[in-house]
């Protein structure tokens, strides 16, 4: 167990293992994403009230779910890098931010596009949508804060603290539709009890959620590899890797 953690802290090992994971995970993710999108777009019936515009949920919901989960990954990595000073946790935290920002952006934009035909407006300042916008700013804030420091160790610390402060936003996003009156509807997929979405529509949605998790993993690993190369560029193993 502990030897695994020690290995995780070793840049060359992480670089090598992430490379071999990406070699099969990336193509698999792309295939699953395309399959899920085609299934959702062409092989499901339209919703009885929204018609075909509901097909946007096949990207909106997975993007939103993984954007939230990605924040947990970033916060845990931030805490580990603060407490144990683990360099690779710092790398992981930094690598999470652009991926999470992209997914949050997708969730917001597709939500706006879906809102126009459904609600009759692109945007409304309700609790769910506003807290999601704050999530985007948190991700962008971590990216900006990291770039603002010349000393990367101080940058990592500042970003970790910002990330930890921002975690309070995550339960707010989850619960916003239950705690306050909002325009956004409550969750359709329920972990306990029956989901209020028909099985024929649920299965492609679950496939898409799985694909987006895999996509997050791929993008995270790719960003981590880039950052590892950048930080370790003076070491022997990178010189050997690049020279060969």
């Amino acid at each position: 167990m502990w030897s695994f953690f020690h290995k995780l802290g070793s840049p060359p090992w992480l670089y090598r293992i992430s490379g071999s994971i990406l070699r099969w995970l990336l193509p698999l993710t792309l295939i699953a994403l395309c399959a899920g999108a085609v299934w959702g777009l062409f092989y499901t019936a339209p919703d009885f009230r929204q018609g075909n515009s509901y097909r946007i949920i096949y990207i909106h919901v997975p993007a939103a779910v993984v954007a939230l989960a990605g924040y947990y990954v970033m916060a845990i990595a931030g805490a580990v890098s603060l407490i144990w000073k683990m360099k690779m946790a710092d790398v992981a935290m930094k690598a999470c931010a652009p991926v999470g920002a992209a997914l949050t952006f997708i969730a917001l934009v597709t939500g706006a596009i879906w809102g126009k035909p459904t609600w009759g407006t692109w945007w409304v300042w309700d609790a769910r949508i506003t807290s999601m916008l704050i999530l985007l700013f948190l991700y962008l804030g971590v990216i900006a804060l990291y770039e603002a420091f010349d000393n990367k160790e101080a940058a990592g610390k500042a970003c970790a603290v910002l990330t930890l402060v921002g975690t309070v936003n995550i339960p707010i996003i989850y619960k916003s539709v239950d705690w306050w009156y909002s325009l956004h509807q409550p969750a359709s997929i329920k972990f306990t009890g029956e989901s209020s979405i028909d099985p024929s529509m649920l299965y492609p949605l679950l496939l898409m959620i799985g694909s987006f998790y895999a996509l997050f993993t791929c993008a995270l690993l790719m960003n981590m590899r880039l950052e590892i190369l950048r930080r370790e560029s003076r070491t022997g193993w990178v010189r050997k890797l690049v020279g060969a």
């Binding site: 609600w119 009759g120 407006t121 325009l183 509807q185 359709s188 979405i197 028909d198 529509m201």
Partner: peptide, 18 residues
């Protein structure tokens, strides 16, 4: 001055709804 439709969390094909 503005009326918005609020959608619920139920999704189903028309046949199922029927």
């Amino acid at each position: 001055t503005e009326v918005l439709a609020k959608h619920d969390e139920n999704y189903m094909p028309p046949e199922v709804a029927e």
